[in-house]
C-alpha cells in the first residue's frame, strides 16, 4: 500500500514538473510510426519540425541522411500523415532539415555537452544517451 502511494506521488510529481516548465514535446502515439522510426533512433516528436521539413524528410527515406530507410508506399504514407498532422505550426524561412541544427537546439546544448558525453552518445541525434525521459517526450532532465 505504501509502495502504491509513493509511486502515485512520484507520478504526480513527474507530471507537474513536466508541465510546469512547458518542456514536454510530446511522443509518437501512433504504433506503426513509433516502431518504424524508432527502429534506428528515437522516434522524434513531430512538433520539433514544421510540416515542410517532415514532407522532405519522409519523402526521401531511401536517402535518409546517408542511410537507406525506405519503407513500402503504404507505410510511408501512414508515417508522413502522422508527422504532418502533428508538426510544428508557424511560418519558417529556411526550415531546418535536422533537429540538431535548430537554433534553440544549438543554444540549449552549446555549453552543456562535454566531449566525453558527446563521444559516448556517438551523435547529437542520440537524445536518449543523456535524456533518459526522451522516449516519454521529456527532455528537461539535464
Amino acid at each position: 500500500m505504501k509502495k502504491v502511494t509513493v509511486s502515485v506521488l512520484m507520478l504526480v510529481a513527474t507530471a507537474m514538473t513536466a508541465s510546469a516548465d512547458g518542456k514536454r514535446y510530446g511522443t509518437i502515439r501512433d504504433k506503426v510510426t513509433r516502431e518504424e522510426c524508432g527502429a534506428c533512433h528515437l522516434a522524434y516528436p513531430a512538433g520539433f519540425l514544421p510540416a515542410v521539413s517532415w514532407k522532405k524528410i519522409i519523402g526521401n527515406l531511401p536517402d535518409h541522411f546517408g542511410d537507406d530507410a525506405s519503407l513500402d508506399e503504404e507505410t510511408t504514407k501512414h508515417v508522413l500523415n502522422y508527422y504532418l498532422k502533428h508538426s510544428r505550426h508557424g511560418k519558417f524561412r529556411n526550415p531546418a532539415m535536422r533537429i540538431t541544427e535548430l537554433r534553440w537546439f544549438v543554444r540549449e546544448h552549446r555549453h552543456e555537452v562535454s566531449r566525453r558525453a558527446r563521444k559516448r552518445a556517438g551523435t547529437m541525434s542520440n537524445c536518449q544517451a543523456c535524456h533518459r525521459g526522451a522516449a516519454r517526450g521529456y527532455f528537461d532532465d539535464d
Binding site: A39, C40, H41, L42, D63, D67, T123, S125, A129
Partner: peptide, 26 residues
Amino acid sequence: GKPKTPSCTTCHSKSPLNAGRTRAGK
C-alpha cells in the same frame, strides 16, 4: 554503397554475437 556504411560490420560490429549500434546511436 553509401560512403558511411561500407560494411555490415559498420553498424553490426565485427562479431554476430555482439550487439551493434545504428548510426543514430541506438
